[in-house]
Write a protein that binds this DNA or RNA. Structure first.
Lengths: 187, 187
DNA sequence: ACCTGAACACCGTTCAAGT
DNA sequence: ACCTGAACACCGTTCAAGT
């Protein structure tokens, strides 16, 4: 493993364990077995390291979406499965999820991250297009539908994380609420 | 003006001018004309100050939603107007908007903020209920519809801020995309 | 090319002291 | 009760120096 990959891995682990605040360059360096300013040989600064962590996660998610597209499920279920992957990721890696989908300032300043983000969004757009072709979604602009679905999912994740969406005990889960949305978007 | 109100105001202004990173207690203190640790007499720590800034904005937004509910518009337009208020706020005060709707960690640790947030969400729920009564929205659970609308709006704001939603030049605005969503949610 | 240790400026927070 | 100045621990970043 290259030092650069080690640093990205260390930052990911720290994000999972202690949130963004725990990702100090000193902690990252120590976890990767280098000094606290060795990262500067591989990333312009702390934000650039975080942007690369986010890009790596977006590429992994994009590959999983592509796999789902090739699966045997019906188009609407493929779409729901992809959204389910995002929901699961937001629960197992909340800080990394927030970095990927909830850090607009980071994306604005790092074109590479914008590219990864656009590629991931493009996978969702393809899944939505498949649904439209199968008459499983209304005939509205694909980009608008995809943006609304992804946006709603992200907003629900945040509402849940803020405690505004008391889930459980008979109340609908995020997955069920997204299924409702897809249903309402059906023709 | 009380010192406490001065500090909240100073923090709000700093958020608007330089984002969350600009809100150091030293800068807040200086802008309010007190020392850099005077805030500790009024707030437990920096996060508590930020939570109070967010609560203040949520109360202002809630009052505006209540006004909109009492307006002469049709229920669906009242709902769209309320969503428009949020979109406008996200554009004129992006950092404050992010604090209110995109800082789950802050909300989790500050019950007061959760209460303000729930009160604001309750206003949206009322507007959705009015739409349902007027047959302007499908007969799905009100809470789910309201959560989906608010969530989608928030997600779109973030996508736009990340540059993933190239708006303008013929492409739909956030307001138009939300109008599409409300339309798709109509019976 | 990659890494290290020292150093700098900055920040949140605490504390003893003042009125 | 409210405020201040000094101090502490921590952090991102830079730099001179090492291999």
């Amino acid at each position: 493993m290259t030092t650069r990959a080690n640093l990205i891995q260390a930052a990911s682990t720290l994000l999972d364990q202690g949130g963004e605040g725990a990702v100090t360059l000193r902690a990252v360096g120590q976890a990767a077995g280098v000094s606290h300013n060795a990262p500067y040989r591989h990333f312009r600064n702390r934000d650039a390291l975080l942007a690369d962590v986010a890009s790596a996660d977006l590429e992994t998610l994009g590959r999983r979406f592509a796999d789902i597209r090739g699966s045997e499920e019906a188009p609407a279920n493929r779409l729901l499965n992809a959204l389910g992957v995002l929901i699961a990721f937001s629960r197992t890696h909340p800080a990394r999820y927030r970095l990927v989908f909830g850090a607009p300032t980071l994306a604005r300043d790092h074109p590479d991250l914008q590219v990864s983000s656009a590629a991931c969004l493009a996978e969702i757009i393809t899944l939505v297009d498949d649904c439209k072709a199968a008459k499983a979604l209304a005939d509205a602009p694909t980009k608008s539908l995809a943006a609304l679905l992804l946006a709603a999912l992200h907003g629900l994740v945040l509402l849940e994380a803020q405690g505004q969406l008391q889930t459980g005990k008979g109340l609908p889960t995020l997955e069920e609420t997204m299924a409702l949305m897809v249903d309402l978007f059906s023709p």
